[in-house]
Design a protein around this nucleic acid. Structure first.
Lengths: 129, 129
DNA sequence: TTTAATGCAAAACCTTTGCACATCA
DNA sequence: TGATGTGCAAAGGTTTTGCATTAAA
């Protein structure tokens, strides 16, 4: 399973390196078009699937009925998702050691990765009212 | 917005009270049929939407491209999802106080609810190999 | 040249909507 | 009666598949 270095595929990665937030397929298409890279929607789905399989991208779901993608190489972090504007901010701290330990001991569950998502209102959305 | 006590709607709640794991619409239809309650798929979607709006159910997404539902009334917990068999186990401990505090101070993000998901292999799936 | 990527059309899934009819309170 | 629930058909949104063609290594 080799991944070729095509215009669209490498642009997807460059886009994610530049932007800080997780993007969906629609976002990618828009940003690719702005860079005069015109690819079919199908192709974008194939690109993100391939890159996700290769663990270059990580797929995320925030209760939107669609997937978002971010670079796997980002330092370990979690997400704070605004329930109003859907803005996603990163969270760096992560003290779930005890939760993990407990799951491994009590449930005999071998953790491969974990995810913490905080849902709430971001600064801007709170100050509007 | 009143919720009527119909055969299907109350059966959905009873099913969730009996079963411990989050179910999807397909699961509900199967279990309703077994109870000789024949409802259209559309109706089940409307039921879970209504119950979710009323905060009786909580909608969950585990990277499956579809939603699952569990009772909101369950004691606060999180999920351990087997990446192989997709079994979902509950996790009771949750020491994310610091994570929350930090998000509220540093990001000025007002947390409404949070979610911790541990992905890995359950006991059975690990012992197969 | 060999393998992987692409475009286009079609289809698969999950989910929602519109409308007429049925049913609960 | 008046509001809510239901079935059926249709459609919307996201994602996948098939196939012939094009491009990368």
């Amino acid at each position: 399973m080799k991944i070729r270095n095509t215009k669209a595929s490498s642009a997807v990665i460059r886009i994610l390196e530049k932007e800080k937030k997780p993007l969906d397929v629609e976002d990618f298409i828009g940003r690719l078009n702005r860079r005069k890279i015109n690819v079919d929607r199908t192709t974008v789905f194939r690109i993100v699937n391939k890159l996700t399989e290769a663990r270059i991208l990580t797929r995320l779901e925030f209760d939107e009925g669609k997937a978002r993608y971010e670079l796997t190489s980002l330092p370990h972090h979690h997400h704070a998702i605004c329930t109003k504007c859907r803005k996603v901010e990163d969270i760096k701290e992560c003290n779930i050691r005890e939760v993990k330990k407990n799951a491994e001991n009590n449930l005999s569950f071998k953790i491969e990765f974990h995810r913490i998502e905080l849902f709430g209102k971001c600064h801007e959305c709170r100050s509007i009212y």
